[in-house]
């Protein structure tokens, strides 16, 4: 009896290894993803099913019709941040998602974003 070429129900590290093709870190633009980065699926006609996309890629696309953070994706899919980031790298490369990093209080060279702080403050005061 020979071992299955690919486990049918991989768990833990094995499952991650299969999902990511052994990549433990995302490459390219996905390397700077943050837990609070918003992910939105790109709309428009897409070949479906697309070759090379795993079930988890499709799941991300489905959940991100409305913007969703990387942290939420991780929680909903039960996958750690770095694995989600690798899957997002694939989707970014395929042009299937857009990502938007959290807005910092200071953007380099521009100084403190007072308008943003005011916006957050008035939102909190309405709670």
């Amino acid at each position: 009896m020979s071992a299955p070429r690919r486990p049918t129900d991989p768990t833990g590290l094995e499952r991650y290894y299969v999902l990511t093709g052994g990549r433990s870190k995302p490459a390219g633009p996905a390397a700077t993803l943050d837990v609070a980065t918003l992910v939105v699926s790109r709309t428009g006609p897409q070949p479906s099913p697309q070759p090379g996309l795993q079930h988890e890629h499709e799941e991300i696309l489905r959940r991100c019709r409305e913007p969703l953070s990387v942290a939420e994706l991780g929680a909903h899919l039960g996958l750690p941040f770095n694995i989600i980031a690798v899957l997002l790298a694939d989707l970014l490369e395929a042009g299937r998602v857009e990502t938007r990093d959290p807005v910092p209080a200071n953007s380099a060279g521009l100084g403190p974003d007072l308008a943003l702080l005011e916006e957050v403050l008035s939102g909190l005061q309405r709670l």
Partner: peptide
């Protein structure tokens, strides 16, 4: 983590 809708176009995430 949790989140707070600040307005229709801004979400605050708390970690």
């Amino acid at each position: 983590f949790g989140k707070i809708g600040i307005n229709d176009e801004l979400v605050l995430y708390l970690f």
